[in-house]
Amino acid sequence: METFLQQLINGIVQGSMYALVALGYTMVYGIMGLINFAHGEVVMIGTMVAITVLGLLAALGVPMGLAAVLALLAAMLACMGLGWSLERIAYRPLRNAPRLTPLITAIGMSIILQNLAMMIWSRNYLSFPPIIEKVSYEVAGAHFSNVQVLIVVLAALSMAGLLLLIYRTRLGMAMRATSQNLPVARLMGVNVNRVIAAAFIIGSAMGALAGFMVGAYYEIAHYQMGFMLGLKAFTAAVLGGIGNLGGAMLGGLLLGIIEALGAGYIGDLTGGFLGSHYQDIFAFVVLIGVLMFRPSGLFGEKTGERA
């Protein structure tokens, strides 16, 4: 029972970070039908920018709390700029291209960003300075820290904010319209280019927040960290039904929990045959299982026979 509770807590924390990244994938996919493979790299650059800014501010003697907020803002701004330029430079010219073309472009951008990051931040592991003093709590034998609480609360707040934006503002309405039917939305006077740019910018901001959290949680960063994180988050988005915001959030959370529980129990379940280093396959096994019975994800709309 203690393991269960402990792994559940770890899973929720990890899952809320997945969910934030998954939102970036799902928003772009919902509107353009594009898998933005470079999104994981955007998240990584968010972490890196935060580390650099934190280092600079610490050298200037700024108190840690303020420095953390400023670093988060800087990371978000940098990623928003990056997301916007990605769309403007790489994807916009390919709006009418064959379906796989933007996918290859996304892969190319991902390679470019990763190597740029390696040039700027070196190929070594960087340590993320502790932003608040760690306090540990214990409930029913399971441990959790204030950093974990902070991550879950921040993630929940920002997701609530996103839902408000999408369902209560004019921009949100335009985004929903565009994702339903782009040409018709354009005919109704929606500035489609602005909507798509907004999706990239908002998704990247969420990604930067996630990157900051991952850094603060694991206290380490590496130029290749975006790849696996992006892959898992994309899996989460598909699990929830890609293009669906609520689906991405729940998918992320679910994926985090499944992974954590799976890693905690796989040894007992298989009599010690498979160890916890099989953690990474849970995500994919569950995904394949779910898609076999629900081919468009848990909450995805049923696509017609003519996709």
Binding site: A90, I104, T105, I107, G108, M109, S110, I111, I112, N115, L116, M119
Partner: peptide
Amino acid sequence: LIFGLALV
């Protein structure tokens, strides 16, 4: 980097 650029 050049390789990625070539793809794009």
